[in-house]
């Protein structure tokens, strides 16, 4: 189980803006450790975001997404009290899912 995400979802003028900060190393596989041995790649490669259980976005990522990835997007509709959920899967098969209420 991965580390928790920070998610903010705010409804304004009929649009729900979602901001997500994930907690992940996003190791590229190109770096080497102090002894010169390559550090294996390890990164989030799939992200799914839902509003009230309906898929709003599906992302595919490579290792060149920054460490501790930040993601922001907007969904038409949504109102305070609605649920936004975000889940990710990384290249080792680890997953994390978090949910917030739209404010």
């Amino acid at each position: 189980m991965g580390n928790p995400m920070k998610i903010r979802a705010a409804s304004k003028d009929g649009v729900t803006e979602v901001k997500v900060l994930m907690n992940h190393e996003m190791e590229t596989g190109f770096r080497k450790d102090a002894s010169g041995a390559p550090i294996p790649a390890w990164y989030i490669n799939e992200v799914v975001a839902k509003l009230n259980g309906k898929v709003a976005m599906e992302a595919q990522w490579g290792p060149s997404v920054s460490k501790n990835p930040y993601l922001a997007f907007k969904i038409k509709g949504g109102a305070p009290g609605d649920k936004v959920s975000v889940s990710w899967t990384d290249s080792k098969g680890d997953t994390r899912a978090d949910e917030v209420t739209v404010s």
Binding site: L51, A56, Y70, I75
Partner: peptide
């Protein structure tokens, strides 16, 4: 990113109600 070891950094499939406005952070 043209000069990264692999060009494609991130791809987002948007739902019908999702605004075509996406922000992310990448490595170069």
């Amino acid at each position: 990113v043209e000069k990264n070891p692999n060009m494609l950094a991130a791809l987002f499939d948007l739902g019908p109600d999702t605004v075509a406005d996406v922000t992310a952070r990448i490595k170069m």
